[in-house]
């Protein structure tokens, strides 16, 4: 089933991507081509097959709860586009108070 413009815009919103009207048509065509291609997987009988999420059996390795050296605040925030007092500033997310920009 092909994705419509509305479907694409929904996915774009989930992905936090803004698509311009110019981009929408080509993106829809490309995605539908790829989805048509991958639909061949539906032909396989996969009843009872366990999915391989990871080739290594992963578990969260534990270590002793002891502080180890880490980056200082200045170092950790040095790449932030807008930083003040060791904090990342973002545009206002709630009404009231000072804006971040």
């Amino acid at each position: 089933m092909d994705l419509s413009d509305a479907d694409i815009l929904h996915v774009a919103r989930l992905a936090r991507l803004h698509l311009t009207p110019d981009e929408l048509g080509p993106v829809r065509a490309d995605l539908n081509r790829v989805l048509a291609y991958v639909s061949q997987l539906q032909k396989l009988d996969l009843e009872g097959v366990r999915p391989t999420m990871h080739v290594v059996e992963t578990h969260a390795p534990l270590r002793e709860d002891r502080p180890e050296p880490s980056l200082g605040i200045a170092e950790a925030t040095k790449n932030g586009p807008v930083v003040e007092n060791g904090m990342f500033l973002v545009p206002r997310i709630m009404e009231g108070g000072a804006s971040g920009e």
């Binding site: 991958v38 997987l41 539906q42 996969l46 999915p51 391989t52 080739v55």
Partner: peptide, 15 residues
């Protein structure tokens, strides 16, 4: 289920 999970099952088959 139709996409991601199916692909991971195919991955098992490839292994």
């Amino acid at each position: 289920d139709a996409y991601y999970l199916t692909a991971q099952k195919v991955r098992t088959r490839i292994r």
